[in-house]
Design a protein around this nucleic acid. Structure first.
Lengths: 333, 333
DNA sequence: GCTGCTCATAAAGCCAGCTTATGACGTCAT
DNA sequence: ATGACGTCATAAGCTGGCTTTATGAGCAGC
C-alpha cells in the first residue's frame, strides 16, 4: 500500500465530495454532517430505548441516569424535527417515524462496530492471541465483520492486524510474526498453503450519465479491452486480475487514469471521468444510491479468489482455526 | 407498521446484543461504542485530512481552526492507540494504518449521510417540493440512497417522506397528499399506475450453528414449507410473498415464531431460534459477518417487485420524475 | 535571510451533557 | 381509597472536552 498514492487519490475525491456538499449548503457551518446527525451515544441510547421500551431502562443500560436519557432523546427529537418516542406513564414506545429513524441509526451503529473491531485489532498489542496479516481489500471490507463474529463466539480472543500486500503477508507469516494471513490474487505465495475463503468479482462501473449505462446488451471483452479505463496502478491486485483476464482479448488499452487507491478510482468514476473496474465489495454503496452503474460484460471471468494462508505445513490451530472456520465456506457468491 | 410489535421484537434483540457486549466488557462503562469510536466530527475531519493532505486545510474545510484540528486528530490517535497521520513541515499524510482507519471511518460517515437524508425527508416540511409515500422496506433500505443521489443531481429538491403499508401509500396518493409512492408486494393497488423500479428476493437464513447451514444441496420447497420458521406476522408484505410461493407445495407450516418487525425476526434468527425468511436487503450485514447463513432453495421464486406508483393517469412530472429516473432500471439483480 | 507554508503548545472561555434532587402522573395491589 | 412502584419531566449546578487566540518552531524556495 502506498500512502503517497493514497493521498494523491484522496485529493481527487475532494473535488467530488466537497463540491457536492457546497452545492447543497453553501458555506454554512451546518454543512457538516455531525451537526445534523445525533452522535453515537445518542443513537445507542435510542436503540436501547427501542429495545427496552423505557427511557429509564435504556439509561441504565448505557450507564447514564434517567434524566440524562430523557434530555438526550428530547434534544435528538429537536435536532431532527421529528417525534421519536411516545412517552407514557407506562413506558416509552417508538413512534412510526421513530422506528424508521432507529433502523437508520442501527446502520450507523453497525458501521461503528466494524470500525471498532478493526481499530482494536490495528492497535496490535503484543499480547494478542491471534496475529493476522491481511491484504488491503480483505482488511478493509471483510475482516471487520469476521472479527465481530469471532468476538461473538470467542470474546476473549485478542486479535492484532497487519495490513499489506501479498508479499508483506507472506513475509510476516514466514517470520512467525503472524499466525494467519489473508491474500487476494491469482496464486498462493511461495512457502504458503491456503484455502479459498471467499470470492470477489471485479465489476465494470460507470457514472449513470455515461453512455454505457444506457446500453442494452452486455459489453464485449474486446470492446472493454479497447476502451481507456480508470484503473488502479499496475501491480495492484485488481489490475493484475484484469490484465490476465483480458490478455486473450487484445490486452488492456492504455488507461484513462491510473490511481493508487480504490477510493480514488471510485471517486473518479463517480465524477464521470470514465468507466472504471472495481471490486464488487468496494461499490455496493455506490450502486445502491446509483452514483455508479454496473455494466455487464460477457465472456470474461473477472472473479478472483480470496484465500486464507499459512506457512506450508503449519495448519492453523487455536484462535486461528476459530477464525478460519468462521470464514470458510462463506456464501459470498 | 405496528409500533407495539416493533417494541416486542426489539426486546428480543436486547438479550442478544446486550449479552454479547457484557461478555466482552463486563459492566465497564466503556462497553459503550461511543467511548471507543471517535465521534462523527472527528471522523469527518479525518476524511478531510486524507483528502487535503494537511491538517490546516482540513480544519478550514470543516470550519474549525488548525490547532483544534491538530488536537482532535491527536486525541483520536490516543483513543485508538494507533498513529494515523505522518506530520511533516510540508503537510500530513495518512499512515498505512491511518488509511485503513479512514476507510472504515468512511463507512460510518456514509451511513450517517443516509441517516441524514432520511431524517431530513421525515421532518416533512409542508413546503416540500416532492412528497413521497413509501412502504417500510423501501423507506428503510432503498430510499435514503435514492435521496442522496437526488440531492447530488437536484440539490434544491426538498423531499418529505411518509412511511406506511401499501394501503397507506395508496390513500395518500389518491388524497393528493403525496406526489409519488413506492410499494412492495404482488399487485399494484387499485387506482394506481406503476412501474417496477427494483426487485427484492426473500432469503432463507439460519444461524451458522443450525444444521441447515451445513447442508450440501439446496433446500426442497416441500421441506421448507413443512418446517416451522421464524416469520413476520400474517399480513406483512414478506409473509404474503412467502405464502403465495409455497401455496403449491403444501402451504406454510405453523410458524415457530411470529414477530412484528424485520429486526425482531433477524434477532431471533441470529440468536438461533430457528430458520427465518427475510428480504435480502435486510440481511447483507449479517451475512457478511456470518451471523447468519443463507440457505439456498430450489424451484421456488421468492422474488418480489418493488414499484413506483402514482394515481392512474397522473404520470410523475417535475421532481417526482427526477426521482423516478434515478430509481428505474436499477441493476439490483 | 525572508516569506510562506507546515504543525505544536499554552492559556482561557464556552457549552453540552452529566448528576442530583425533586415533582407529577398513572397503575396496581392491598 | 391509599400507598408503593413504575413511568417521565424539570431545575440547578458542575465539569470536562473542544474550541479560539496567541505564539513558536521547523522546513522549502526564492
Amino acid at each position: 500500500m502506498s500512502s503517497n498514492g493514497e493521498h494523491r487519490g484522496e485529493r481527487h475525491e475532494d473535488q467530488q465530495t466537497g463540491g457536492r456538499r457546497t452545492e447543497a449548503y453553501g458555506s454554512d457551518v451546518r454543512a457538516q454532517l455531525h451537526h445534523r446527525v445525533p452522535d453515537l451515544g445518542a443513537l445507542e441510547l435510542l436503540l436501547a430505548v427501542a429495545r427496552h421500551g423505557s427511557l429509564g431502562a435504556a439509561a441504565r443500560e448505557v450507564g447514564i441516569t434517567q434524566p440524562a436519557a430523557s434530555s438526550r432523546i428530547r434534544s435528538m427529537e429537536r435536532q431532527l424535527g421529528v417525534a421519536l418516542v411516545d412517552r407514557s406513564p407506562r413506558g416509552s414506545r417508538l413512534t412510526d417515524a421513530g422506528a424508521l429513524v432507529t433502523d437508520w441509526a442501527r446502520r450507523i451503529v453497525e458501521a461503528a462496530e466494524a470500525f471498532d473491531a478493526g481499530a482494536q485489532a490495528l492497535r496490535g498489542r503484543r499480547d494478542s492471541r491471534l496475529r493476522v496479516a491481511a491484504s488491503m481489500t480483505i482488511a478493509e471490507y471483510l475482516l471487520p465483520g469476521w472479527l465481530i463474529a469471532l468476538r461473538a463466539e470467542r470474546p476473549d480472543t485478542a486479535v492484532s492486524l497487519q495490513a499489506g500486500n501479498s508479499a508483506v503477508v507472506a513475509e510476516r507469516l514466514l517470520a512467525n510474526e503472524a499466525d494467519m494471513g489473508f491474500v487476494e490474487g491469482l496464486a498462493v505465495p511461495d512457502g504458503l498453503d491456503g484455502v479459498v475463503v471467499a470470492h470477489d468479482r471485479l465489476v465494470i462501473v460507470a457514472a449513470p450519465s455515461h453512455p454505457w449505462a444506457r446500453r442494452r446488451g452486455p459489453l464485449d471483452p474486446a470492446e472493454l479491452a479497447a476502451t481507456p479505463l480508470v484503473l488502479r496502478e499496475r501491480g495492484s491486485g485488481t489490475r493484475q486480475v484484469l490484465d490476465a483476464a483480458l490478455a486473450g482479448h487484445g490486452g488492456l488499452a492504455r488507461p484513462l487514469l491510473e490511481l493508487a487507491s480504490t477510493t480514488a478510482v471510485k471517486a473518479a468514476a463517480v465524477s464521470g471521468a470514465g468507466p472504471a473496474v472495481l471490486s464488487e465489495l468496494a461499490i455496493a454503496e455506490e450502486l445502491a444510491s446509483r452514483r455508479l452503474v454496473a455494466i455487464p460484460v460477457q465472456g470474461v471471468e473477472l472473479r478472483r479468489d480470496l484465500r486464507a494462508v499459512w506457512p506450508t505445513g503449519h495448519r492453523p490451530t487455536g484462535p486461528a482455526r476459530d477464525l478460519l472456520s468462521l470464514t470458510r465456506a462463506r456464501p459470498t457468491g
